[in-house]
Design a protein around this nucleic acid. Structure first.
Length: 428
RNA sequence: GGAGAGAUGGCCGAGCGGUCGAAGGCGCACGCUUGGAAAGCGUGUAUACGUCACAAGCGUAUCGAGGGUUCGAAUCCCUCUCUCUCCGCCA
């Protein structure tokens, strides 16, 4: 959510900023809704102040044993209640409308964010690692995976399209990857591990920015009105909802390994083959909660933490900065990490690291306590995938395949895989 | 799912129709004390919104949430949510 005060005082700047990401705000509508709220509230507060004064006076009369005076005041106070009731009702309505309007607005892009309207305008910042030259025909992860225990038919049979099932060494590899990532972030990057609910209520999703706009992308349990998390970010960021934090506790670094569930509505025809785009995928998610001034540095750190995973797994990748038009709803600035896929001869997203500044914090009401007469402040929140486990599995299979279709395991991962150096060697 | 108990400020905990935004303690901040620290002593310390200069002051709201009774509700009534205990079921 944007700062309503800023929208009042710097309307033109806000509108221009939103326009960069392709969002046209109706400033007149805002002014109308906001003005209505303020006008009604002013009158309601005046009436309430009057009522409170009278009630206090009655109390004083009674304390002074002035029964007659108290009765007199009571008679006066009896009128005017209906007007206040009407005002309260319309105030509630006006506030709801304003709130709904505000919930529809995305975050403002940071000034450094490049212009652009979509994916094609994103800016490559760096490439890291060289795509390997193969001296044999490369196989894609579906062919490689099926040899090892990847089974889409079984998954579709028991669930639906866009679900996968892993067996044997592939399931072991998947588990090893997740453990490797989370241990790295906990032991070397200073994150605290969380284990969180995979079903959350609408309030949690509104706080993190998924609702009300993106309900279509979420799986919902009809009977209980709970939603499956589309990312652990939702759960992690809500841990500190409604809290006033001691600045000494910041920055908070949190990591969780969870499944993520996405309906992928509107993605018909995209990545229909393979494990790239699934309804359910595991992800190791990083979240940082920081002092406002620290969030730019934190974005750099969270991105570096995700990159470290790719480096240790010896996977070639590049870092891309999203243009204003491609930013996620809550993000002010985002770096995507894209891993090289030999079968596709291109880089594919494997991590997205975002600084949401105070956009989520405002909905969450997560603040830092300031001493003296300084006003308390909203924290900044950041999130990044460190990494998407399924896509990492895909990248690992393809990049580390050998001529006999077995998979070489990078050194750093071996301790998590019973020290195996290769998996899927053909049987003699 | 059944029965009972509870939900108060950053935390603990009193209050059970009026001057209660709320005693007391802890914590925290500042000061005194000290060679320095601890202890001790003193002072201060809820949040959000409005007005306004993001000051002071003033006003409004907030004692789990929503409704009700009343001139007036943390306190009384109703509904809901959550937590705990016991029973049932169960990975």
């Amino acid at each position: 959510m944007l700062d309503p005060a800023r929208l009042r005082t710097q309307a033109a700047e806000v509108a221009a900023s939103l326009l960069r990401r392709g969002c046209r705000i109706d400033l007149d509508e805002f002014a109308r809704l906001d003005g209505e709220v303020r006008q009604i509230r002013e009158e309601a507060e005046r009436l309430r102040a009057q009522r409170n004064r009278t009630a206090r006076a009655i109390g004083e009369k009674l304390a002074a044993a002035d029964k007659a005076g108290a009765e007199q005041l009571k008679r006066e106070a009896a009128t005017g209640g209906e007007r206040l009731e009407i005002l309260s009702e319309s105030l509630r309505n006006a506030q709801d409308k304003l709130h709904e309007f505000m919930l529809g607005l995305p975050n403002l892009p940071d000034e450094e964010v490049p212009d652009g309207t979509g994916e094609d305008d994103n800016v490559q910042i760096a490439t890291c690692g060289k795509p390997r030259q193969f001296d044999f025909p490369v196989l894609d992860h579906v062919v490689l995976g099926e040899r090892l225990g990847l089974d889409f038919a079984a998954a579709a049979g028991m669930a639906h399209a866009r679900f996968a099932l892993l067996a044997g060494d592939l399931a072991r590899l998947h588990r090893a990857l997740a453990r490797f990532m989370i241990e790295l972030h906990v032991r070397e990057h200073g994150y605290t591990e969380y284990w969180v609910p995979y079903l959350v209520n609408p309030g949690a999703l509104t706080n993190s920015g998924q609702l009300p706009k993106f309900a279509d992308q979420l799986f919902c349990t009809e009977r209980d009105s709970l939603y499956l998390i589309p990312t652990a970010e939702v759960a992690l960021v809500n841990v500190f909802a409604d809290q006033l934090l001691d600045p000494k506790r910041l920055p908070l670094r949190m990591v969780a390994h969870t499944p993520s569930f996405r309906r992928e509505a509107g993605a018909a025809g995209l990545d229909t083959k393979g494990m790239i785009r699934q309804h359910q995928f595991d992800k190791v998610e990083l979240v940082q909660i920081t002092e406002p001034a620290e969030s730019p540095a934190a974005l750099a750190s969270i991105t570096a933490h995700a990159e470290r995973v790719l480096e240790l797994l010896e996977l070639p990748y590049r870092r891309v900065e999203l243009c204003a038009g491609d930013l996620g709803e809550a993000s002010a600035r985002t770096f995507d990490l894209e891993v090289w896929l030999p079968s596709q001869q291109r880089y594919r997203e494997i991590s997205s690291c975002s600084n949401c500044r105070d956009y989520q914090a405002r909905r969450l009401a997560t603040r830092v306590r300031r001493s003296g007469r300084q006003a308390n402040e909203l924290v900044h929140t950041l999130n990044g995938s460190g990494l998407a486990v399924g896509r990492t599995l895909v990248a690992l299979l393809e990049n580390h395949q050998q001529e006999d279709a077995s998979i070489a395991i990078p050194q750093a991962l071996r301790p998590f895989l019973g020290d195996d150096a290769v998996i899927g060697r053909p049987h003699k």
